[in-house]
């Protein structure tokens, strides 16, 4: 088992799948010659050549739509979005075309496309570049959305996504790209739709996804050390499908739940998770479910304020104590 970065893990997943299936193509802005805007695809052009690793013009609706069309004929495009924020100019392709064609054709067609790239705030780049569209996209039946938080999950989920026969949207995080972790060299996947208990505990369940998992794990350490509270952290990993059982199992054990996400609160992923808990584990709860999410405003540019806008370790600890009170 090697210790590699989240970025390297994503690259390793693509390399494996490029080798495994000749129909896999990597496409996106600056993915080939420039080696990737975030260097995720570094070296792939050299290794696989220009037929497999394709630079596109700045034309998200065009090239993503092209990828969807190609996927209908059996190509398996892995499209990089420089930021998921830019998916908004291709929304019709991503939602109407990739998400609906199977349904509207009565099951005659499927779109095995992967769209991946960073979807996060916290990088001091202002509102247009800080969107986290996992809840928006996951609200469309026909679409799958995953949000890996660790190098192990990044590799395993991306490989599963590339092998999946439906559109899978992989939302990464630029702040995690340098995070390191143990990742097997041998072939493995992380099944889509399976949450992971990243920390075992007995007093409180924190449900999180993406970087909020890392924040929550840090908060859990403090809660243990300074407050003597045993916290369980459930990493959703996949937003749709959603591993409802793992969430419920944990809540039935701890009887308290705090939901943490970097989205804005209104109609966030955790609005759905909160509904799930109250509808399926209401009698198990010893306290109301609480949430920590980003402050409800377009992403602020000022770095000091942006750090406050997003869920921090301090805010998670403070909110956890309220649930436990």
């Amino acid at each position: 088992m090697a210790v590699i970065s989240y970025r390297e893990a994503l690259r390793a997943a693509m390399r494996d799948e490029l080798n495994r299936d000749e129909n896999v193509v990597i496409m996106g802005e600056e993915v080939a010659q420039f080696n990737g805007a975030y260097k995720v695809t570094e070296g792939l052009l050299k290794e696989f050549g220009p037929k497999r690793i394709v630079d596109t013009p700045i034309s998200e609706a065009g090239f993503i739509g092209l990828g969807i069309g190609a996927s209908m004929l059996g190509i398996r495009p892995v499209m990089e979005l420089m930021f998921w924020s830019f998916s908004y100019v291709a929304f019709d392709q991503i939602v109407n075309n990739a998400g609906n064609i199977r349904y509207m054709s009565g099951g005659l067609i499927n779109c095995p496309i992967v769209i991946r790239g960073p979807a996060n705030g916290g990088t001091n780049v202002g509102a247009t570049h800080s969107h986290t569209p996992e809840a928006i996209l996951a609200s469309h039946p026909g679409i799958k959305v995953v949000c890996p938080a660790t190098p192990y999950d990044a590799k395993g989920l991306l490989k599963a996504a590339i092998r999946d026969n439906d559109p899978v949207y992989v939302m990464e995080n630029t702040i995690l790209y340098n995070d390191k972790g143990e990742v097997p060299d041998e072939d493995y996947i992380v099944p889509i739709g399976v949450a992971d208990v990243k920390r075992i505990g007995t007093d409180l369940t924190i449900v999180a996804h993406g970087r909020a998992v890392i924040t929550s794990l840090k908060a859990a350490e403090i809660l243990e050390k300074d407050h003597g509270v045993s916290v369980e952290v459930v990493d959703l990993r996949s937003i749709r499908p959603l591993d409802e059982e793992t969430i419920l199992k944990s809540v039935r054990k701890t009887h308290r739940a705090l939901l943490v996400e970097e989205n804005k609160p209104f109609c966030g992923v955790d609005a759905q998770v909160a509904y799930l808990i109250q509808s399926k584990a209401f009698d198990e709860l010893d306290a109301p479910v609480h949430r920590v999410s980003s402050i409800d405003a377009p992403q602020i540019y000022c770095k000091r304020m942006e750090d406050l806008q997003m869920p921090s370790v301090e805010r998670v600890v403070a909110e956890a104590l309220k649930v436990l009170a």
């Binding site: 739509g65 969807i68 069309g69 209908m72 004929l73 190509i75 109407n96 075309n97 509207m104």
Partner: peptide
């Protein structure tokens, strides 16, 4: 391959089908 309800939305898909044929 359809049959598309959004005006112009099929143009990138058709281009992608041609891409696949060439690939």
């Amino acid at each position: 391959w359809g049959g598309h309800g959004i005006v112009g939305g099929q143009a990138p898909l058709g281009t992608g089908l041609a891409y696949a044929v060439k690939y």
